[in-house]
Nucleic acid binder design. Structure first.
Length: 395
DNA sequence: TCTGGGGTCCTAGGACCC
DNA sequence: TCTGGGGTCCTAGGACCC
């Protein structure tokens, strides 16, 4: 069996790089995309100039300004990010159909079938994306997704110039364990702050420490997970590049500018969130069987509640009805609420009839509108009759 | 410093059924 | 008379990732 050649590609400071294309006066300046420091925002993306001040993703904006008083704040422009993301992903799909998009700015590709040295494959992709989109991208390469991903993280982190790294980091076959061994445990896949702390408290510092540990001892600490962890530490990962991604849940949440305990306000918010979720579901021709809410109080304690409906829905009113019921039954009165969220999961395709229609996005949108208009005219039940018909047929 | 928003996966307990 | 065991669904929470 020949070795797999897997690449992990990650656009450098993606949102900021797009903003620089839209407004070249930002180039080289310390700026961020994210919420304003007056509100409760956090940094979503930081330019490399801003990172030189210690500004990082997910940092509260207030703290970022203290680190860098001249920091420029740019509002998010999601449509622009989607457009550029699509451009990059399309280029990758021209190189190979084996593309797994992980997020807007990140993908794995399997280039095992390309008969060129891995170094030149990486360089070709990087310069082509630069030529066609002007976006900087970094690439990690290895015999598995895990190695490619970690290689990319390490490659990027070595560059501290205040400019986009555009790094390429290739781990040759057979060198996986040696590459991982000296790295900090938190570079591991699936090891976050909590697990890292547990590992550190038992004397594990590097990935090599985990690779070398007595399997039985590791098992007493981490149970079933120990085996997976140790395999990963040894550089073993057989996971494939998955090209088919289907969403399993859709949710929207919002943090208020000010905490509130006013039931009318919370109710209206829940209604708005339910409509948003429903609209997104309909746009993707999806519906779900489970409605959930998320509530965070001002002291940051958070709870979730969910309810299985026994049938599919993608209608705002119905999602809201169940969400509000869950809220009513579980909200502690008099405790100010900071965040409210609504979600729908256990998704399926609801309308078999849709397949009879032209698949063009415009047609779909027209159909959605038609369904929504019917709902307005005849009441929400009209949307469900088709749904129940389908269920009766299939059962 | 005072902590966003969108997700996925895993675990564990209880209900219910055979 | 003092209590089996497996399967499946549902729910809640938590860890993790970008």
């Amino acid at each position: 069996m020949t070795e797999r050649k897997i690449l992990h590609l990650d656009l450098d400071a993606f949102f900021c790089s797009v903003e620089e294309l839209l407004d070249p006066s930002l180039v080289g300046k310390p700026f961020v995309v994210g919420g304003s420091p007056q509100g409760r925002g956090v940094i979503v993306s930081a330019s490399y100039a801003a990172r030189m001040y210690g500004v990082r993703t997910a940092m509260p904006s207030g703290r970022a300004v203290r680190l860098c008083p001249d920091l420029i704040f740019v509002r998010r422009d999601h449509p622009a990010y989607s457009t550029y993301s699509r451009k990059v992903m399309n280029i990758l799909k021209e190189i190979t159909p084996l593309v797994q998009q992980v997020s807007v700015d990140e993908a794995f590709i399997d280039v095992s079938d390309i008969q060129l040295p891995i170094q030149s494959i990486c360089q070709d992709i990087q310069s082509r994306i630069d030529r066609e989109t002007k976006l900087p991208i970094s690439i990690g390469a290895g015999t598995s997704k895990m190695i490619a991903k970690i290689a990319n993280n390490i490659g990027k982190s070595r560059v501290r110039t205040g400019k986009a790294p555009r790094s390429i980091n290739i781990i040759p076959p057979g060198k996986e364990a040696a590459f991982l061994a000296p790295l900090d445990i938190q570079e591991m896949w699936g090891v976050g702050p909590k697990t890292a702390e547990r590992l550190r408290s038992r004397g594990f510092k590097t990935i090599g420490d985990i690779a070398d540990a007595d399997p039985e001892l590791l098992k007493t600490y981490f149970g079933k997970y120990a085996e997976v962890m140790q395999k990963r530490a040894l550089g073993i990962d057989h996971s494939e590049v998955h090209t088919d991604h289907e969403a399993k849940s859709v949710s929207n949440e919002t943090t208020f500018r000010q905490d509130s305990e006013e039931i009318l306000f919370l109710k209206n918010t829940l209604m708005r969130l339910s409509d948003k979720v429903a609209y997104r579901l309909r746009k993707d021709n999806q519906a779900g069987k489970v409605v959930s809410i998320k509530v965070r109080y001002s002291d940051f304690t958070t709870f979730t509640r969910q309810k299985a409906l026994g049938r599919l829905t993608n209608v705002g009113d119905e999602i809201f009805e169940h969400a509000f019921d869950l809220l009513n039954k579980n909200l502690s009165p008099g405790r100010p609420v900071r965040l409210l969220g609504v979600g729908v999961s256990n998704l399926e395709e609801p309308y078999a009839q849709l397949e009879l229609f032209d698949e063009s996005p415009l047609k779909k949108q027209e159909l959605t509108q038609a369904i929504d208009e019917l709902k307005d005219k005849f009441g929400k039940d009209v949307v469900f009759r088709a749904n129940k018909l389908k269920q009766n047929k299939t059962n």
